[in-house]
Structures are given as C-alpha cells and as structure tokens.
C-alpha cells in the first residue's frame, strides 16, 4: 500500500502541474504546419483558451457531440477521451480539461473528408469536466463530460 500511495502522490504532483508554461523562447515549429498556437495553449481560463484557439469564447451547447470518457478515472495521467459528432462541415475539434492550470489540451484540424471522430488520451489534474468544442460551418458548439479522478485510490 505504501508503495502505491507514493505512486499516487507522485502522479498527483505531476498531473496537477499540467501546464505548458515553459513555451517561451522555444523553437518555432516547422513549416509543415501552421504555427503552434502558443497563446491558446498557455491560456489559464477556459473562455480565454477557447477564444484563442477558435476565435470566440462563445459556444452553443449541443447534444450532437458525444464525448466518450470514463466516469471515474483511476489514473489522472492517462484518461482516454473520444469526441465524435454527427454534424457536417466540421473544421476542428478542440479538447479542453476544465481543471488543468492551462485547460487547452489538443486541437484537431480536420480537412474535408476526415470524419469528426477523434480519440486520444489526456492528463487530468483533478475531478472536473472534459470539454469538447466543435467548429462546424463557422459556428462553435460545445459539450462537456464530468470525469472523476480518484488519485487517492480506494474509490475516492
């Protein structure tokens, strides 16, 4: 148990620190892609991050977006998240973790022909919502799902 506890504490430290703050002065990404959106990834607030990533903080909640994530995540360092929607004309899917110190986790740009259905794994500092913002036909739609992170183990 003691070993396990130590591991939990370690995880807590590493995950709670889930920020991207050290971006200053680093190499600029290459020419293959559009420049990495530093402002969005270093934003501290949800609205701020969405605005920087998608151009506007205003999103319309939508039932057409499905977020697949566990209700309870035992290990906050690896939380599998899938986002899918039935909407047409999706340009991008933005994934945010509400309680992380810099909420923006990933932006997926989807060219025409790519289905709005992506999966990845994110780190979560503590219990909170995972937010997906879908940009379709120039409008922003969002959905959220609560994930309980039981860092302390034993059912939290």
């Amino acid at each position: 148990m003691s070993l396990n506890q130590k591991r939990r504490v370690f995880l807590k430290g590493s995950v709670a620190a889930g920020t991207l703050g050290a971006a200053a002065g680093l190499l600029t990404p290459g020419a293959v892609l559009a420049a990495w959106n530093k402002n969005a990834f270093t934003a501290k607030g949800i609205d701020e991050a969405i605005a920087a990533a998608d151009g506007s903080p205003t999103t319309t909640p939508s039932k057409d977006i499905t977020i697949k994530a566990p209700d309870i995540a035992e290990n906050g360092a690896v939380v599998p998240v899938s986002v899918a929607t039935k909407m047409d004309g999706v340009d991008s899917i933005t994934l945010l973790v509400e309680k992380n110190s810099t909420p923006l986790s990933a932006v997926f740009h989807l060219p025409k022909g790519t289905l709005p259905d992506v999966s990845t794994r994110v780190k979560m500092g503590k219990t909170g919502d995972v937010i997906a913002v879908v940009k379709a036909n120039g409008k922003l739609y969002s959905a959220r799902k609560s994930v309980k992170v039981t860092i302390g183990g034993c059912g939290g």
Partner: peptide, 19 residues
Amino acid sequence: VINCEWGGSVSKNPYLAFK
C-alpha cells in the same frame, strides 16, 4: 487528413485515432 496541435496535457506516449 488530420492536423493536430497538442499541449503538455496530452498523456505520455500519446495515442491518436481518427477516421
């Protein structure tokens, strides 16, 4: 077919799936 921007809060040894 996909173009992703990631931050440090994507898990270690990242996984990506899309269609």
